[in-house]
Design a binder for these strands. Structure first.
Lengths: 332, 332
DNA sequence: ATGAAAGCGCTAACAA
DNA sequence: TTGTTAGCGCTTTCAT
């Protein structure tokens, strides 16, 4: 920056100001400085800027993985919203483990983010403590947190469970199984199971059998393998609610291997509305929600939290619920 | 840090040293400092550390998207390797557009990464200039760059094209179409097409028809929609090589709608070996490669580049080729 | 509209 | 083994 200042014949301060929109620099000076910057290929050092101003312009997001399309889509929506506000998104991996999440969070906090976004659910006590100490807005997304200390933008997973059961009931199914993700988000699976149980009770059905995955197994393989256990526990099953479309695809494949036809013998419903579902045979009935817009909503929550802080207003926790919809196709 | 130093009764410098493994601090002092740090919930500020030491401990990676599993898997492999070396991965989105990549790169460079990882292919001139100015190791991954100025860890896409055609030839197919991704990575599509053309020429076939996608369309939908054009351009087609498994799934669905059976009338081969392929009907024949290990290899290249710099050695560009393998199933 | 001085929180280099 | 001094590259504040 000193170089730029020298070449442009101004002080470093003027260069710094020329880089910002609002600052008071004459048009001519700014133009000259910007030209020199371009000539020299100067890129300002944000670490220095952050240290000096106390604003890192960083928002951290920690997700279980970016291998499944959902979290990538959320991140993309969030990134788009933040970029418009001059903020950068810093992504971290939690690998579906609370301990890894804690590590990722600590690494993130070293960069002094202005806000933290992480997937809802359980967190380690140390992670909770770090979040409290950081004194920045925190948003938990996707599923409702165990102890909601912050803002929440959660998908209405109970409604998902309810919708699925209602669809199965409408199709004449009576003996239900609910299968949780294999991705460790057991909170999400439980929420969905609660919704399913409620709906089943309303209809006067026998309580659905709940089956949960063990960890970060590939969802399709998990679905394919759990069919054996499912059939053993509930031989008369005629309706299955799956934690995500991957599991559903695996379950359908597994059922086929066990000689059960879908949807004639057993109806299967997925979750997530992955684009592949439409092209399967049978086409997958699933519960959908808008993942990129979930990211956008998280961004909006942050932006208004920042706004509130700037205005000196009291910050009240947001509780946003993202709606779900049934995508009725052939598998159920 | 000053707080910690005061409470522990040492200087800030000693706290700083206690935080690092190698530094010379007595066991007793370190233990005391670490305890105070834990009590106070102190998290060091890396922006300050980076400014002072000139080491950001950041490696930036810019990928077209994290909505498709591949880039997420690469990022995960890279992150794992870097974390072991005390480096953090900073992810950026390019949204399949060169201009967005340039923006993401500039934002990244403001954080002074110690290395930059980006997907191979074309980059804007300004991006190239920025990379040169940054004077840090650069790795281009997945597909070979147009002007390879740096390290390259590329999947052997020509071999992928060749393997696919050889499989089709072995199945008695003679009239071939090669479909490029709809994800803007046209370089990758072209490489694959070159390999396919070579193999077709060797077998004495008529040159395969090449069809390319228009941008960031959902791959499955793209595959489904391009079938019409494909059948118009090449009515006698009996073998299709697709740019990724999503496209292949769409093509199979599209062919079915046009009354062509797979694989009886037309054989279809995908790319990427997505786990869903095994569970489709017909099960998808595809070309696979190990995405997480691609990420790990990128990490290794960076680590040895750092090592070379530290040792004062000359840095010679790496050219790593990641092998592909045919995953023979039912669709071809 | 522009500049000078001070300092953000850390670490390199040197001293003890 | 520990402490002191200086300074990383910016931005804040205050002055002009």
């Amino acid at each position: 920056m000193a170089d730029v200042a020298k070449v442009a014949g101004v002080s470093a301060m003027t260069v710094s100001r020329a880089l910002r929109e609002d600052a008071s620099v004459s048009k001519a000076t700014r133009a000259r400085v910007l030209e020199v910057i371009d000539d020299l290929g100067y890129v300002p050092d944000q670490a220095a800027g952050a240290l000096s101003s106390g604003r890192s312009k960083l928002v951290g997001m920690i997700a279980p993985s970016f291998t499944s399309a959902m979290y990538g889509a959320v991140a993309r929506g969030l990134d788009a919203t933040l970029t418009k506000a001059g903020l950068q998104l810093f992504l971290g991996f939690a690998d579906f483990q609370e301990e890894r999440e804690e590590q990722a969070l600590e690494a993130l906090l070293r960069r002094r983010p202005e806000a933290v976004v992480l997937s809802g659910g359980r967190h380690t006590p140390k992670a909770m403590r770090m979040l409290a100490n950081a004194s920045v807005p925190v948003v938990e997304f996707f599923c409702a947190p165990v102890s909601p200390a912050h803002h929440v933008v959660a998908v209405d997973l109970r409604a998902a469970g309810r919708l699925a059961v209602e669809r199965l009931a409408a199709g004449g199914r009576r003996s239900l199984v609910v299968i949780g993700e294999s991705d460790g988000l057991d909170i999400a699976a439980q929420e969905r199971a609660i919704g399913a149980r409620e709906a089943a009770a309303e209809k006067g059905f026998r309580e659905p059998t709940a089956l949960y995955g063990a960890g970060a197994v590939a969802p399709i393989d998990f679905g394919a393998h759990i069919v054996g256990e499912m059939l053993a526990r509930r031989p008369d099953v005629d309706g299955v609610v799956c934690g995500n479309d991957g599991v559903a695809i695996g379950v359908i494949a597994g059922l086929r291997r066990h000689g059960r036809r879908v949807p004639d013998d057993v109806a299967v419903i997925g979750f997530g509305d992955h684009e592949v579902g439409r092209h399967l045979d049978p086409a997958l009935t699933t519960i959908g929600f808008n993942a990129p817009s979930l990211g956008v909503e998280v961004g909006k929550v942050l932006l208004s939290a920042f706004e509130a802080v700037r205005a000196g207003d009291e910050i009240k926790p947001y509780r946003l619920s993202i709606g779900v919809e049934l995508v009725g196709r052939d598998s159920a």
